[in-house]
Simulated scan of single mutants.
Amino acid sequence: MLVDQGRPRGGVPHAGHQLLEARPGGGRAVEHAVRDFLSRETPEIGFFGEEEGATTDTGRGLVWMLDPVDGTANFLHGIPLCGVSLGLVDKDMPTLGVIDLPFLGSRYSAAEGHGA
């Protein structure tokens, strides 16, 4: 989950922005928040998360794919190369991807036919 408190072990500084939570279950909290938001905004699209697997029908075409804490080992060691990875897959073909790196203040995205 994104929170406004603390820092992970190893010294990634808290710069006043939201940080990924460093306690057990943090990935599940992020996954729940993203899944809940996407199910409200795009109820016709399936969802698969790294923590809980498929929580909605993923056999009908479009599916959101989420890694809520991509780079967990880096995060736990205070290395800022970690973030949230989200993709949209259409019948096993990736069509959209977003990687958010909150400690670096960076976000990268790419979409089929539009590049990165």
Rank of each mutant, 00 (worst) to 15 (best):
G6A: 07
G6S: 00
R7F: 12
R7I: 10
R9C: 12
G10R: 08
G11Y: 09
G11N: 05
G16P: 02
G16I: 04
G16Q: 08
H17G: 11
Q18M: 12
Q18G: 12
Q18E: 15
L19C: 10
L19I: 10
E21C: 13
A22V: 10
A22E: 11
A22G: 11
R23P: 11
P24E: 03
P24R: 02
P24M: 01
G25K: 00
G26L: 04
G27C: 14
G27L: 13
A29R: 15
A29Q: 15
V30I: 14
E31M: 10
E31D: 14
E31G: 11
H32P: 11
H32E: 15
A33T: 03
R35K: 15
D36H: 09
D36E: 10
D36Y: 02
F37D: 15
F37E: 15
L38N: 06
S39I: 07
R40F: 09
T42H: 14
T42L: 10
I45V: 07
G46M: 05
G46S: 01
G46P: 06
F47N: 05
F48M: 08
G49H: 00
E50V: 08
E51C: 00
E51P: 05
E51I: 00
E52P: 00
G53R: 01
G53Q: 00
A54Q: 12
T55G: 15
T55D: 07
T58E: 08
G59A: 01
G59E: 08
G59H: 03
R60A: 01
R60M: 02
G61Q: 01
G61P: 09
L62A: 11
V63Y: 07
V63W: 00
V63F: 03
W64S: 02
M65A: 12
M65P: 03
D67H: 01
D67C: 02
V69L: 11
V69H: 06
D70R: 06
G71R: 04
G71Y: 03
A73S: 14
A73Y: 13
A73Q: 14
A73K: 15
N74P: 09
N74K: 05
H77Y: 08
H77M: 06
G78W: 02
P80H: 07
S85M: 10
G87P: 10
G87C: 07
D90Q: 03
D90C: 03
K91C: 11
K91R: 14
M93V: 13
P94W: 07
P94I: 05
T95Y: 08
L96M: 02
L96N: 02
G97P: 02
G97E: 05
G97Y: 00
D100K: 12
D100Q: 14
L104N: 12
L104M: 12
L104K: 12
G105I: 07
G105Y: 06
S106L: 13
S106I: 11
R107D: 11
R107T: 14
R107P: 15
Y108V: 05
S109K: 08
S109E: 09
S109V: 09
A110K: 04
A111N: 07
A111S: 03
A111K: 03
H114S: 13
H114N: 12
H114I: 10
